[in-house]
């Protein structure tokens, strides 16, 4: 399985997307399918200030992209931008509605909080900008030990000189700080021209000094871990008791019933 865990949802608030936006999203999914991706997450970015509605907090309607259901596994993801450490209450409300939860920390304190305490799957850093803090080994690895992975978005840097320069420096910093562990590579762009096949994307990390097997893992094993972590939060009790039989692929609701299978005990 090859994953791209960051396909941006066209809206960053709770308004519904227009027809043309949905069309471009579908085009993007079609290209990703063509490039060989199998597991996709639609990413809804949410600023900390936005007020959550009282009912359904997940604006992503998977019925809009229903024609891909048989070909791609599509998940929903939310990214919360955290500036201020004191108010991250939104997370607990989002917990049960999205498959994946990630944060974008805007300050060093927020990064430390996300790395050590928050119940999330991914930490997404804006590598195409100059980071306001220095990535420390201790902070980064406290996250990876806990199973929280760092996400690298390659999409933004492809078309811009300055962004590319920042990206290279920052990602080298992350590779050094994380000791080459716990990274996820995803596109993170709504521009279909910036999408790359998994081999191209992996090669980018090889250029930056990651060995090939670890670079390959950033689009295969590592995102699977993130997905599993997120799905287990939804579908299990403390990862011990899982409802349903297929953790990653079951789309059915929790507490569902299955047709009874006759076993030995029924026959004796």
């Amino acid at each position: 399985m090859i994953c791209d865990l960051n396909v941006p949802w066209p809206r960053t608030d709770y308004s519904s997307p227009t027809g043309s936006e949905i069309l471009s999203l579908k085009k993007q999914l079609a290209i990703l399918e063509e490039l060989g991706y199998t597991h996709i997450a639609l990413n809804f970015t949410l600023d900390q200030g936005v007020k959550l509605p009282s009912g359904n907090v997940n604006p992503i309607d998977l019925k809009l992209v229903q024609e891909f259901q048989s070909r791609l596994k599509i998940f929903t993801r939310v990214t919360l931008i955290i500036d201020d450490v004191s108010s991250h209450q939104g997370l607990s409300k989002l917990n049960t509605s999205f498959d994946l939860i990630s944060v974008i920390p805007r300050s060093e304190k927020a990064l430390q909080l996300a790395a050590s305490n928050l119940e999330i799957d991914l930490i997404s850093l804006p590598f195409h900008q100059r980071l306001p803090f220095y990535l420390k080994h201790k902070t980064v690895c406290s996250a990876t030990d806990r199973g929280v992975l760092f996400e690298i978005n390659y999409g933004d840097m492809i078309s811009d000189d300055l962004k590319r320069r920042n990206f290279f420096g920052n990602v080298k910093g992350l590779i050094r700080a994380s000791r080459k562990r716990g990274m996820v590579l995803s596109s993170g762009t709504s521009d279909p021209l910036s999408l790359r096949g998994s081999f191209d994307a992996v090669n980018l990390l090889v250029v930056l000094g990651l060995d090939y097997s670890r670079a390959q893992a950033t689009v295969t094993e590592q995102p699977t871990k993130a997905l599993l972590n997120g799905r287990l939060r939804l579908k299990s009790h403390k990862q011990a008791v899982v409802m349903g039989t297929d953790i990653l692929n079951d789309s059915e609701n929790i507490g569902h019933k299955r047709r009874k299978v006759e076993t030995i005990v029924d026959r004796i």
């Binding site: 403390k238 990862q239 008791v241 953790i247 019933k257 299955r258 009874k260």
Partner: peptide, 13 residues
């Protein structure tokens, strides 16, 4: 009697 719940236990946990 037609249906049942199917539940997985993660042995590691």
């Amino acid at each position: 009697p037609e249906n049942e719940y199917q539940v997985l236990l993660n042995g590691n946990r």
